[in-house]
Write a protein that binds this DNA or RNA. Sequence first.
DNA 1: AGGTCATGTGACTTCCTGGTCATGTGACCA
DNA 2: TGGTCACATGACCAGGAAGTCACATGACCT
Lengths: 220, 220
Amino acid sequence: MPKQTFLNLPEEKRRNIASAAIEEFAEFGFEASSINRIVANSGISKGSFYQYFEDKMDVFKYLMDVIAKEKTEYYKGKHPPSANLGTFEYFHWLIKTGMEFNSSYPRLVQAISRVLLAEGLYYGKDLAEYHKMSTDGITMMIKQAMENGELDPSVDVELAVIIMETWTNAISTYILNEGMKQKDVMKWLRSAKTREKIDKMLYVMEYGLRKTESQFVAGI
Amino acid sequence: MPKQTFLNLPEEKRRNIASAAIEEFAEFGFEASSINRIVANSGISKGSFYQYFEDKMDVFKYLMDVIAKEKTEYYKGKHPPSANLGTFEYFHWLIKTGMEFNSSYPRLVQAISRVLLAEGLYYGKDLAEYHKMSTDGITMMIKQAMENGELDPSVDVELAVIIMETWTNAISTYILNEGMKQKDVMKWLRSAKTREKIDKMLYVMEYGLRKTESQFVAGI
DNA sequence: AGGTCATGTGACTTCCTGGTCATGTGACCA
DNA sequence: TGGTCACATGACCAGGAAGTCACATGACCT
């Protein structure tokens, strides 16, 4: 949603502005972020900013779109280990690949998660569509798992979505917080210890989900 | 941390100020909340506000202390169903009783969770001590569970804390968001359907934790 | 009655915010 | 060369923020 003037800008200038905005959101969150500071840190004038973007939300949405596009590219470059993965294995792969991606853009991811997980939780309205996109994706995966017979059809879909979303967020937050402390994020992320921790979290979700639901299905 | 002048105030005036602050934080979050509005809505003058509190954070901390005290009282009034509960049963009871408490002060809880879960996640510093309190509590419970033989001693304590915290937050958020839509929160909270949903979430956590860890302990 | 002191008040200052707009600049074209 | 047009600029505006302070009030004591 940035205006055409912004898209016409030379690559470097665009990157300067983007990274100033990223730093701002990552440090202050959405509400407390200041356009004045973004402008000052990216070396453009106030007037130019308004020739590029509508307002603060417009820059933020631009960042969202950038990361969405890059992430899609990233996933296209990678491929699941096997063509016929079960839904849970696929979810594992999705999360892990996502984490690797996040680690290559830690500051950008931090900025966006901060706004989405924090203020977005309550603000709704402006960011509702983005939340719906992820909810819909997970819902489809769960229905897929049911069709494949991996999950009992009587499973509470709404609940399963909450559970998977909760875990995705929890793992992202954990990686983001811990990862920022490391000198070499990628190395840390790929270390056996870190991978084991992520695996454990995912298994907590998966086995919990399987066992609980089958137990409830059994009528206990 | 409010000043003595505030504590000397008549009950009703104090309650007016508190509820104006609660509404403000619940609606705008911490950063975007305005002392000017709080002052206007509680019918006191700006000067008085600064005679009662240091600043915005001071009011917020006051609310935190109020709820901490009231919650402690509430737990004292209730008693676990049995004296010799296992740690997991005890955790269930804690969460459920906590939810009932939260439903009696929905707006206050909403205000506080909003700031703690959202901005608090990243802000750290000012609110770190409150986070540490809950972390310490959960850590103690987990070590207790180990002593009781409910959890293998090789369980990763740090991980278990993250898992239990994640679920506590997820359930609180769910109840808060859904509960606000109901006309009669307490009735909704006590309905079989709601209780079942909470139960399921807790079992997802519990069984996941038990099974995962024992599996990893087995060396797979 | 006069004095004291804790409390209440809101106009005021200072600062920063988002947003506008008249003016300036320079690449391109006729 | 002169004209046009997209883009750049920062002084400027209105609004609202946090925080201060000189003054008002009134309960209580001597």
